[in-house]
Amino acid sequence: MSLITVTSPHATRSGNHTGAFMRQVVYATIPGIVVMTWLFGWGTLFNLMIAIPAALLAEAAVLKARGYNVRFALRDWSAVVTAVLLALAIPPTSPWWLIVIGIIAAIVVAKQLYGGLGMNPFNPAMVGYVVLLISFPLEMTRWIGPHEAPSWFDSFRMVLASANVDAFTGATPLDSFRTWAGNAEQLQALPILHGEFASLGWEWVNIAFLIGGLYLLARKIISWHIPVAMLAGMALIALPFWLFDDARYASPLFHLFSGAAMFGAFFIATDPVSAATSRYGRLIYGALIGVLVWIIRSHGGYPDAVAFAVLLMNLAAPTIDYYTQPRTYGHHRAKRGATR
């Protein structure tokens, strides 16, 4: 009888490990991937096929350099999640090198240079995205118009950077609205702004990611606080402005189902490492992301704003946590930010 002596608890939840959590996130993106492929062609899949191996390679290289057990560390699937999220965020028209640069920025710089999994203050996928957006604004804004999906061959040529991408691209709904904001007639006339209930095409992308998000909620991979707060924050600030001047400001519904709203709410803002962690903190964190997204969309220089809003709130997350400690059992009130 050889007895091991370890401290309690001795029982742990079975099938409960980081890799499984991360895999669930990847599975939850499948509806979104399907809809994006249907709308924008094979480019999305090519992005994924380049991003995932690139991310694993980059992660493995840095882990090896840092002296970690590479096989063990890769099993946490975190690099795959980052790769998938980044691949879904960049346009399906992107050349291969764009994706690789984005992955390197995300995995090597934003994640591993800060200490690897769990230590990064910023959402790696969004750092990669913003690096690309600032460095290659042209490539990063060439989205394909909905239902104008190129053939797989054209998509392949785009990946190899040898196709005339402009032939397939068109303005996104958010872009169009920003261009014509204030011009009620034009806004009425633009077909891309009028889908079934929100923007054309993108409403389905958002619904797909909403479904994936609900799956994550059901599996308790994420808590409801951040997505609900973010969507509510976005809708609540959009509503009065829209009521006040609907020629200049888009409706809450339009905001909720355009661009990366749902993707951001359920897949980006919920990255636990870089988000706020207390219950109240998550509500504040999510709500402020929603507000920032609306502000940047309505008044900023970029059509969409999830990446910027999330990164800005990443900065604020530790402070939010500091001031939103829950009240511990047996304490009259929470120690919120009170030092000594």
Binding site: F21, G118, M119, P272, R282
Partner: peptide, 16 residues
């Protein structure tokens, strides 16, 4: 493995 701050622990803590 590294903590990913998923918050599961905070969700189950009986002392909050």
């Amino acid at each position: 493995q590294p903590c990913i701050r998923c918050g599961s622990c905070a969700d189950v803590c009986p002392a909050d």
